[in-house]
């Protein structure tokens, strides 16, 4: 009996060590990037030679980085908006109606995120050429939306299934029409699920590089593409470091928000 207890205590300690090791491997490199963005040495010698904000100042004034950032934000917002619209509509259709092929919809929506990005990228590239669509922000947004839809769809579908239809029936029973019911009852119940899905979508779109490579135009670069292009130009390395550090912070915020939003405000039924 006591042996079992001691064994489980030892097991727990071992598990703690492994967990710590994994966290170190994942997060120490990220910390190094952030620290190096303040490192006075241009070659990033370790330990850091001294503290400086000059790389941050240079990055701030880099027009290439700034326009890439703007493109990324636009693409992220655009892809998220498309995903919110289509994902919500698909979730409604699947949860509230019966129709031919209903069981297949989830699979079709999920597939783009499971497919290798390079396959999606090449396929979209070909399709845009055939359709004669000029490459640019629009094509990037479409490309990102293909794999963003699933996050909104899954979140919304899970919420709609949990809600069932009785709140909506109650609303209509009390005299509300279809639009009033959506506005006052369904949407408030769905809001946190959509917000969580949207925030994750933005984060996903923001750092996407493979599909973007195949759908961007030479003049329209997202931030990840800009970083990739400037990474091996020695003059730009410190600026890239700063941009990477900024990106870490920018990515953490939506993911953290999404988790909080999904965690509370779940809204049970009564």
């Amino acid at each position: 009996m006591s042996g079992a207890v001691a064994g489980s205590a030892r097991g727990r300690r071992a598990l703690g060590v492994v967990t710590a090791a994994v966290l170190v491997v994942v997060y120490v490199p990220l910390a190094v990037v952030v620290i190096n963005s303040f490192n006075r040495s241009r070659t990033f010698g370790w330990p850091p030679a001294g503290f400086t904000l000059s790389w941050w100042a240079r990055a701030w004034h880099s027009t290439g980085a700034r326009s890439a950032l703007a493109t990324s934000v636009e693409a992220g917002l655009g892809a998220t908006a498309v995903a919110l619209l289509l994902g919500t509509m698909a979730a409604f259709a699947v949860s509230r109606y019966r129709f031919f092929g209903r069981e297949t919809v989830s699979f079709l929506v999920l597939l783009p995120i499971a497919l290798p990005g390079i396959v999606t990228g090449i396929a979209l590239n070909n399709a845009f050429r055939v359709l004669g669509l000029p490459f640019g922000l629009l094509t990037i947004i479409i490309g990102h939306a293909t794999f963003c839809i699933v996050l909104v769809y899954n979140n919304a579908l899970a919420r709609l299934r949990r809600l069932g239809g009785s709140l909506e029936e109650a609303s209509m029973d009390l005299g509300a029409g279809v639009l009033q019911t959506f506005r006052f009852v369904t949407f408030p119940q769905l809001r946190s699920a959509l917000l969580a899905g949207g925030l994750l979508d933005f984060a996903l779109s923001f750092d996407e590089i493979i599909v973007t490579t195949f759908t961007a135009a030479p003049g329209v670069q997202t931030l990840p593409l800009w970083i990739f292009g400037n990474l091996f130009r020695p003059n730009q390395a410190p600026v890239v470091n700063v941009v990477a550090a900024a990106l870490i912070v920018l990515s953490v915020v939506p993911v953290w928000l999404a988790q909080r939003v999904a965690g509370d405000a779940g809204g049970g039924r009564f």
Binding site: A170, A176, G177, F184, Q189, G267, F270
Partner: peptide
């Protein structure tokens, strides 16, 4: 209708629930 599971709107107060039919 009074529903079996009551189907009260969880995001509204008691007064908002009760006033819902009048509001719409």
């Amino acid at each position: 209708t009074v529903f079996q599971d009551y189907a009260l709107f969880p995001h509204m107060t008691v007064a908002q629930n009760v006033g819902y039919g009048l509001m719409v």
